[in-house]
Design a protein around this nucleic acid. Structure first.
Lengths: 245, 245
DNA sequence: GCAAAAGTGTTAGCCGTACACCCATGC
DNA sequence: GCATGGGTGTACGGCTAACACTTTTGC
């Protein structure tokens, strides 16, 4: 009986049972090329090795011995896509035996959000490209499943926590914030009720500035109130917010 | 640039960056020895190796190359505690660099629930013991943090999903089901409103049997309706329910 | 009959939804 | 001034909390 739970000594007599990788599902809001409506997009990288050479996959890499899990997720996505996430949180660990041909690979997967402006700045090349989240090609490994799960998590979490501002810049209008919710939840929201819901949650504070230029009444700009977070994130805390990677 | 996200080939030139372990937080409901009120308990195993020799820890073990993550969690907890969980779900992956002296250990942690009767049958020995969840001793590694997080997950999940029946046997009274909710949420619930809430959710079906023996009106026995599960468990599905390990 | 828990009924308040309506700006 | 989105007011319906009340058993 080998009772050595989560212990420190490596498995005696067992040589490297599985390889440990870290991957990230990154979300950003970008306008649909034809309708201009904001929808969910995510960047993928083309595989330049076997297996699944040529297929699109989530950015990621192997876990170095001296790097924290979240830090490794942030680093690999910055190295491969050039993006700096505003929010990063562990999603799930995928370790199915058959998920990768050859050696067993266990992937600790994170999910992240980047601002729309940051996403627009990204270098898009032959091996990095943005895809609309609900029209993905066939991905490498089990990455289609992973993306599905990440989208589900994003949708549920937008409703009970207030993470939507991670898609936006420092200041934003309530219409922009509503646009985020609508894109994630894939349904229109009543502007009046949305305003009251956000005001009641107290997660935003009004600034004195207004956004001019449009042929309507100029909307007020708001700022996220970092001192308040109503969502009970649990004893682990809410992962990395801001560019504190 | 090593782009090989979640890939198949082991890290080239990097020898076994971290050891992979699997641990489980197991919950059961047992009566408080003095007040007889049902509260949350969990079984721990005493460490019989360094580091943290002698301290109590979560049951677990190393991940074999040919075993699924959930299966390994179920097997190790059965081997160390003799318990068969009725519900098992991945909790979180802990991989902090300093969490274990010596080699880097990444632990994929699961959480589980066992029936009260099953828990009562368990062999309790020198190296396996039940502890009340809110009066734990100092545990090995970061296991205190892990248990905290698991309790938080259990509390939140009891409210939006209907997993409380995993603590109970095949049939149960609504008072017993309410007792589960009260123990997990640590607050009393109105019997009348609880009844209506459960009936509205349609997760239980009434049987014709009643529980006699007490000096009151005998309560009706209910059964869990496996065909209905209102909680949106996401694309990954709800982990293992029943003894299908 | 009496105590105690099972089970039913009723009411008040809160909250999400729907929608009518006024406000302010560019053209 | 007119179209359009920003912003406010209000009323309805469903859900939950609180609690009175009836039912059914063992003693």
């Amino acid at each position: 009986m080998t009772i050595d739970p989560t212990g420190a000594t490596p498995p005696v007599g067992i040589a490297s049972p599985a390889s440990l990788a870290v991957s990230t599902v990154i979300f950003a809001l970008r306008p649909d090329p034809v309708t201009s409506i904001m929808t969910l997009w995510l960047p993928l990288v083309r595989r330049i090795r076997q297996p699944h050479l040529g297929l699109w996959a989530l950015p990621g890499g192997w876990l170095p011995e001296d790097e924290e899990l979240g830090a490794a997720a942030g680093r690999t996505l910055r190295e491969t896509t050039g993006l700096s996430p505003k929010y990063l949180e562990q999603l799930y660990t995928f370790g199915g035996i058959g998920r990768s041909p050859g050696t067993r690979v266990v992937s600790v997967v994170y999910w992240a959000m980047v601002e729309s402006e940051e996403a627009a700045r990204t270098a898009v090349g032959e091996n990095v490209r943005w895809f609309p989240a609900d029209h993905l090609p066939e991905l490498a490994f089990d990455h289609n499943t992973i993306v599905e799960y990440a989208q589900w998590r994003l949708r549920t979490k937008v409703e009970y926590s207030r993470i939507a501002h991670a898609f936006l810049g420092e200041t934003f209008t309530l219409a922009q914030l509503r646009e985020v919710h609508e894109a994630v939840l894939r349904k229109p929201l009543d502007p009046a009720n949305f305003r009251r819901m956000i005001e009641a949650s107290k997660v935003v504070v009004a600034t004195e500035e207004r956004l001019a230029g449009a042929p309507h009444r100029p909307p007020r700009l708001y700022r996220y109130d970092s001192s308040i977070d109503l969502a009970d994130q649990g004893p682990l805390g809410p992962a990395i917010i801001g560019s504190a990677l």
